Simulated scan of single mutants.
Amino acid sequence: MAQILVERENRRFNPDWTTQFFFHEVKGKPTCLICNSSVAINKVANVKRHYTQNHPDYDGRFTPGTARGQEQLDRLTRQANGQMAMMRGATSLQQRAATAAVQALYPEKPDIQQAVQSVPLSRNTCARRIKVIANHITEGVIYDLNMCESFSVAVDESTDVNDVAQLSVFVRYYLNSKFSEDLAAVIPLTERTTGKKIRWLSKGKALQRVWTVRQHIEQFLSEIGGDAAERFLEILRSEHSLRDMDFLTDILAHLNDLNLELQGEGRNVVELWLAVTSFKDKLHCFYEDINSDINHFPITTEFVNGRDDVVNLTPARAFLVDVFLEVEHCFAGLDSIIGIIELVA
């Protein structure tokens, strides 16, 4: 009776549900792009109920209609399309193999052939085929990375079908006269994570976080006691160690800013060259600044102003020289095409 009422109401999937509730249509049923669960009836109340009850944080993290929301929707859609294409490919391959085997064994019995063709693949068979394909792709990426001269790594936050945060590791490399980009690994993040925590994976943010909670760390080490704790306490209470940590926190924050400028899809070589050139100019400014007002190093400034005696910043100046030489070395390849860059810049 319920099915007859549904057919009479002529309920159909509304495309607006995709942008509003992260749903798409699979075999006539509204299916959640986030967790891959389906709703029995094409009804907005059912779709909305599933979205609000099972994914309440999505409105805050990926608000529909915003750029971040659209980016997440595009990512989930590509993921779903890829999974369906892989399943169709694995199913087709298995069915062709089974059909060929039955035709060879029972060439005069079309009823048996038809029966075998109509048998669906089990879930375990599909999962096994997907695992084989995934392993093959992984081995191919590892082989290419071993063959190429150099490669770069980028990380991004994503979620799986159960909305569990994971770290996606991408690699970009040059091999066989072409640039390639592949997904190297997906690492589940079992603890609760946010975009801010993902950015703490960089050294600058990590050290800044340690500096922010250094007093709590010192209190914790004092409470637990022990030889190891005492050694760490000596480091935290040492004037030289605090000076070095404050300066490293400042300079690594600047390096982290450069790192972010060099990331992002669609960045061209001119933009990267301008970012590197600008940072090298900043290093000259930093070197002069460390000899005078140290305005570009706020944490170091706080440390210096809190001391009555003169703070020796000679190690900081030497470190800035090393940073400049390292940047020159890492981006030496840009010098070979500087003529072309200046022409199009």
Rank of each mutant, 00 (worst) to 15 (best):
E181D: 06
K196C: 07
E271R: 07
A206D: 12
T190W: 04
V269T: 09
F247S: 01
E223N: 10
Q219T: 15
E234D: 14
L201G: 13
L175A: 04
F247C: 04
A229M: 06
I235C: 03
I187T: 08
L207P: 01
E239S: 13
D227G: 02
V276G: 03
L242M: 13
V270G: 01
F247H: 01
L236G: 00
N268P: 02
A228E: 13
R243N: 13
K203S: 15
L274W: 03
R267C: 03
A253Q: 09
A184E: 09
A228W: 00
I251D: 01
L274P: 01
D227M: 04
I198S: 08
D250L: 08
I235P: 00
L201C: 05
E234L: 11
F220H: 10
W200T: 15
V269A: 09
E239A: 15
I224Y: 04
N176E: 13
S222K: 13
T190D: 11
L255S: 06
D250A: 06
R192W: 00
N256Y: 05
K196M: 10
S180F: 09
R209A: 15
R192Y: 04
E234P: 02
D246V: 11
T190Y: 07
D257E: 15
L262A: 03
R231K: 15
T193A: 05
E234R: 14
N259H: 06
E191T: 08
I198R: 07
L252F: 11
F232S: 09
P188Q: 03
G226N: 09
S202K: 02
W273N: 08
Q219E: 15
R243L: 12
V213S: 09
T249P: 00
T190M: 06
L189V: 11
T212K: 11
I251L: 09
W273M: 02
L207C: 09
E234C: 09
A228F: 04
E265R: 06
Q263W: 03
E181S: 13
G264Q: 01
A275W: 05
E239W: 05
L242N: 13
F179K: 08
K178P: 05
T190Q: 11
T194L: 00
E218M: 10
I251W: 00
S177L: 11
L255H: 03
R214S: 10
D244L: 10
L189C: 11
L183P: 03
Q215N: 10
G204I: 04
G204H: 02
E271G: 02
L236W: 04
V213G: 02
L201K: 08
E181G: 05
L183M: 12
E265W: 00
I217G: 02
V276I: 14
I198L: 14
E265S: 14
W200H: 15
T212V: 12
R243A: 10
T249K: 04
R237M: 09
W200G: 07
E218A: 14
E230K: 12
N256Q: 15
I217N: 03
E181C: 10
W200Q: 14
N268K: 08
D246I: 00
V213N: 09
N176H: 05
I224S: 06
E234W: 02
V210S: 08
L175H: 11
E191P: 02
W211V: 12
E218Y: 07
N268V: 07
R231A: 01
F232I: 06
